[in-house]
């Protein structure tokens, strides 16, 4: 009987598709929603990125030419690559380190710490920005008040030196730290104890265990975190918008923020904004394809 099922060539056609109607019926709402709200708008956006906004005439790459010849937009790409590099490294290293701490401490304390760590993940970027603005505001924020109380000149965090970059990166890191730590922690708990025991018998110390056991075993977790962090960082919008507005001198401008401002600028042809969005989408999709290829190859190896 089993051999009959495994032999596809002998499977009756009617049997093969006997559940097709119900399957299509169940898939239909999801497909329909995806079509209406994702794929059709995407197709329309792609078409419009090749058109003149006013006349609808096809101008092909004119809108792309406009957006790549916009200095603030190209600078924003450079900025976001820098931010992504800093956030990814800081997030991965610190989350990995803190996950080890969580694993090592008493279970009850670890539970409490996990909750505390996860709370920022429940806060939206806008709310986090407001919290940081209360602290950093030049006109009367917490730090300004303390500094003036101590007879020290206040710091203009949003404009002075490299502070603006820190103003954008720290809240972004803070928001994602809990989630990434918990993901790493879950990954750590999944490493079989027998591996460590075998390594210990072979004379491996803490660092050798980490390099030869923990890190290889958690490779897929790292890749997952990496994809999330890179994709999230490339789409940074709310925090730079709220705290620095993209300034000073476009130092904290991100492509998403630029396009957001561009959409709200009635002076700018909206098809240029759409062309810019398509460009960002291409970059993010490319990164994701590369990352998924990596995961896929890892699975193949497994």
């Amino acid at each position: 009987m089993l051999s009959n099922y495994s032999d596809k060539s002998k499977k009756p056609r009617l049997f093969k598709y006997r559940n097709a109607k119900s399957a299509f019926a169940m898939m239909a709402p999801a497909v329909l929603l995806l079509l209406i709200f994702a794929y059709i708008p995407l197709a329309m956006a792609i078409v419009r990125s090749f058109q003149n906004y006013t006349t609808g005439e096809f101008v092909w790459f004119e809108n792309y030419d406009y957006i790549v010849k916009t200095p603030s937009f190209t600078k924003a790409f450079g900025n976001v690559i820098l931010f992504t590099a800093i956030i990814v490294v800081a997030q991965m290293v610190l989350s990995f380190f803190f996950a080890h701490v969580l694993k090592a401490i008493n279970a009850k304390v670890a539970n409490a710490v996990k909750i505390l760590l996860y709370v920022p993940c429940l806060i939206s970027g806008v709310v986090a920005s407001i919290i940081f603005m209360f602290i950093l505001n030049y006109g009367g924020g917490l730090i300004t008040s303390i500094l003036i109380g101590l007879d020290i000149d206040p710091i203009a965090f949003a404009t002075e030196g490299y502070w603006p970059i820190a103003c954008v990166i720290v809240p972004t890191w803070w928001l994602g730290f809990g989630y990434n730590t918990l993901v790493m922690y879950a990954g750590l708990l999944n490493v079989p104890k027998s591996y460590y025991e075998a390594a210990q018998i072979d004379g491996a110390g803490f660092f050798k265990q980490m390099i030869y056991v923990t890190i290889p075993y958690m490779k897929n977790i790292f890749i997952l975190s990496l994809i999330n962090l890179i994709t999230g960082s490339l789409q940074m919008l709310d925090i730079p918008y709220m705290i620095t507005g993209g300034g000073p001198l476009d130092m904290t401008m991100t492509p998403s923020l630029y396009l957001f401002n561009s959409f709200r600028d009635v002076n700018r042809p909206q098809n240029v904004t759409i062309a810019g969005s398509i460009l960002i989408m291409i970059v993010i999709v490319t990164i994701n394809i590369i990352a998924f290829k990596c995961i896929h190859s890892e699975k193949m190896e497994d």
Binding site: T70, P71, S72, T159, E160, G247, P248, L249, D250, D265, N267
Partner: peptide
């Protein structure tokens, strides 16, 4: 004329500020 161009002058003055 395009706002981006005017903005470049503003950036010179902003450079002096920051």
């Amino acid at each position: 004329y395009p706002w981006d161009i005017s903005l470049e002058t503003g950036k010179i003055f902003e450079t002096m500020q920051v």
